[in-house]
Design a protein around this nucleic acid. Structure first.
Length: 732
DNA sequence: TTTGGGGAGGTTTTT
DNA sequence: CCTCCCCAAA
């Protein structure tokens, strides 16, 4: 077990009891240390139930469990391994009686939060233009992460803005509890309160967990630190692993100080350092080391490897984001698809990349926000289930009471909720009081509402009878005739959306089979807490696309970082403070250190923003790379400065300084030829030209933009075609 | 109550 | 460019 470790790792793993901080550089075997530590503890006679380990994602938790099980046997694997949030839910549910919450409280995500806040702002008669929902959300979350309640926030508000936000916070918290719901921050905050306020509960957990282990410690916030301290207050065995250079969640309250000042929070702590990197080839590591050395606020470490230099890091400039995407396709084709991962700073960048990959028919998976659980149809159906599970959930009710249309509009819903408030009854339970509804809504509207609530009552009976979640879901879909609704709503996308519905049903079925008859509440909890990373489908041979944030903790043989431009990476909104730029630099460092064998850093000279092109500069981080480790290529696209641009005052910004690009002439010539070939091909088409396409038949060219040609195929509609991939034959 | 047109505004990053 | 929200009309 220990023989596979180097001496530094072994020392950390076998460290005696007490607080321990392992400063583990990127790729230095952090996960291995953590899992081996657990296995080692078990071997020392620690009981599996005495170990609590925090991971950053559920996927990481699952993998850690599996690895430990492999070392010590499945029956001896610890069962308290999970994220702060998932673990919080588990603790809160079993002590719901001590809280002001029912056992099956709902968990509100960002979207639910926004909808709830919208109502709160209306109730407070605040102008939603002046008092934005995002700003309130940020303020509330910041308070919660510092363990500041609404009263305290109000008391301490020194400025008018704070005062209003504190009032919003107060009303928001009331509304949330009225819906018998908690938000993500509450999952930690309420757990902390539970442990603080109930001695016997604290004794129970702190007594049980002899060892508390924390992964990605650099990204924990004040509240999480507090929680760790509470849980370890009896035994004091805290084993944390982190890398201050990879702290990238400062914007949501993460404090690197938890790590840098570890000794203050856990007196007598011992520190271990892991600096040998087992992941990346020499040139890649060299590049990473050079860049991160530009940060002033860091403890400082130097990763090394004995793996050899490998290939140089490729840095390429492209004309625009479309060209960059085309190049991504090309790079992918030069490697094994499943080995390649494409990274970007913002989710919005994924669209173009996805389009290019789709046109080239390259299997790919976009990991992250635009995916499954964010889709409208999925959210709608989940809202039905949430309302079934929790009849007080006003946000879900508002979402679906008129979806599909039941002639129940905003006014009626407003009165309905008012009615539930005055009589202090959950909205769903008003079904038992048609008399109240009739007075509050009038007869006609009341009849429609009762009709809906009756249906809801049927589903609730099903759920109470422990009907499997997927069967319940299928019944709901049938009862509301969802398929017809989708077709009427948006005929073009109905089929695709119905596929998503089917996927949701099968995931519910998988849950039912996998959880040995899990409840509806458990299913919803699981869907609420999925992290982006949890959705990665391993081993399917597809290219993966994700944000740099999502890629944290992962590694890929071939990594392509796109959009390495100033104002994007580093992002504009973080560029004006030193702390901001340093966090962006850490983000860039995380991106670079994901790569094992091969790293490409791409940037474009111009990029569309809100529809129109804006000129860009290469990221300042590219200028911080060591020349020996990189190969810079400037690609000649045969591109000329558009006349219009110079007429209107020229480019907003200067072009990239030439001397950044002293590429080897061989490589340059090679690339140039490729590119010119593409450009030459696209020049064959012009507006009004008659062309033929392999699957769409004959059509007329409507627009030519580079090699992207828009063609009207009559009954097949207008299509955007990249001539690089789909050939168009001229008919004239 | 629904619908559509018009207009404004929006892009960090996530459990 | 797209999405969302508001308002007026049916």
């Amino acid at each position: 077990m220990l023989s596979a470790l180097n001496s530094a790792q072994r020392e950390a793993v076998t460290a005696p009891d007490g607080p321990i901080l392992v400063v583990a550089g990127a790729g230095s075997g952090k996960t291995r240390v953590l899992t081996t530590r657990i296995a080692w503890l078990l071997e020392q006679g620690v009981h599996p139930g005495e170990i609590l380990a925090y991971t950053f994602t559920n996927k990481a938790a699952r993998e850690m469990k599996e690895r430990v099980a492999r070392q010590v046997g499945a029956q001896r694997a610890p069962f308290w391994i999970g994220t702060f949030h998932a673990t919080g839910v588990r603790i809160l549910r079993s002590h719901a009686d001590r809280l002001d919450l029912p056992r099956d409280f709902a968990i509100y995500d960002a979207d639910d939060q926004k909808r709830l806040l919208k109502g709160v702002l209306q109730d407070l008669k605040l102008d939603s233009k002046q008092w934005g929902i995002p700003a309130s959300r940020v303020a509330i979350s910041a308070w919660k992460n510092q363990d500041v309640g609404p009263e305290q926030a109000l008391r301490e508000a020194s400025m008018y803005v704070d005062e209003v936000h504190a009032k919003i916070y107060t009303a928001y918290q009331q509304a949330l509890r009225k819906c018998q719901a908690v938000d993500f921050d509450d999952l930690i905050l309420e757990t902390v309160h539970l442990l603080e306020q109930h001695d016997e509960v604290r004794q129970q957990y702190a007594g049980k967990f002899r060892h508390v282990l924390v992964d990605e410690f650099q990204d924990t916030n004040e509240l999480q630190l507090l929680l760790i301290k509470l849980l370890s207050c009896i035994h004091g065995n805290v084993f944390t692993v982190g890398d201050d250079d990879q702290s990238i969640y400062g914007w949501r309250g993460a404090r690197v100080e938890n790590m840098l000042e570890f000794d203050e929070y856990f007196p007598g702590a011992r520190t271990f350092r892991l600096e040998q990197n087992y992941r990346s080839k020499g040139h890649i590591l060299d590049a990473a080391n050079h860049v991160i050395a530009h940060n002033r606020h860091r403890k400082g470490k130097n990763l090394w490897t004995d793996q050899g230099l490998g290939e140089q890091v490729t840095v390429e400039q492209h004309l625009d984001a479309e060209d960059e995407a085309a190049r991504v396709v090309e790079i992918v084709q030069q490697h094994r698809r499943g080995d390649v991962t494409v990274l970007y700073r913002t989710n919005a960048q994924s669209r173009l990349l996805e389009d290019a990959l789709r046109r080239a028919r390259i299997p790919h998976q976009v990991v992250g926000s635009v995916q499954f659980y964010e889709r409208r149809e999925i959210r709608d159906l989940l809202a039905y289930l949430k309302l079934v599970a929790n009849p007080a959930d006003e946000v879900s009710l508002q979402r679906i009471i008129n979806q599909p249309k039941r002639k129940i509009g905003q006014t009626t819903v407003g009165r309905l909720i008012q009615c539930s408030r005055t009589h202090d009854l959950p909205v769903g339970d008003l079904v038992a009081r048609p008399d109240l509804l009739a007075t509050a809504l009038g007869n006609a509207a009341a009849r429609r509402v009762v009709g809906f609530l009756n249906r809801l009552a049927d589903w609730r009976r099903d759920a109470a009878d422990r009907k499997p979640v997927h069967e319940l879901l299928q019944r709901i879909v049938a009862d509301i005739d969802y398929e017809t609704f989708l077709h009427q709503d948006e005929p073009d996308t109905a089929a695709g959306r119905m596929e998503n519905v089917a996927e949701l049903v099968s995931s519910a079925q998988a849950f039912h089979e996998g959880s040995d008859g899990g409840t509806l509440g458990q299913f919803l909890e699981q869907t609420a807490l999925v992290a982006d990373q949890d959705t990665i489908q391993d081993g399917d041979g597809a290219v993966r696309l994700m944000t740099v944030h999502t890629a944290k903790g992962l590694e890929f043989p071939v990594t392509i970082v796109t959009g390495c431009e100033d104002e994007l990476l580093p992002h504009v909104t973080s560029s004006d403070t030193e702390a901001g730029v340093e966090e962006e630099r850490r983000l860039f460092y995380v991106a670079v250190t994901r790569a094992r064998e091969r790293l490409y850093l791409l940037h474009a000279s111009r990029r569309r923003r809100f529809g129109s092109y804006e000129d860009t500069l290469p990221s300042r981080f590219l200028g911080e790379l060591p020349e020996d480790a990189i190969e810079r290529r400037e690609l000649d696209h045969g591109w000329q400065e558009p006349v219009a641009r110079s007429l209107f005052g020229g480019p907003r910004k200067a072009r990239a300084p030439r001397d950044l690009y002293s590429a080897s002439s061989q490589a340059k010539r090679h690339r140039k030829d490729d590119w010119n070939a593409d450009v030459a091909q696209s020049a064959q088409h012009y507006e009004g030209q008659l062309v033929s396409h392999a699957s769409f038949g004959a059509g007329t060219v409507v627009r030519v933009e580079g090699d992207e040609v828009t063609v009207d195929f009559g009954e097949h509609g207008r299509k955007h075609i990249l001539t690089r991939y789909a050939h168009l034959t001229p008919l004239d």
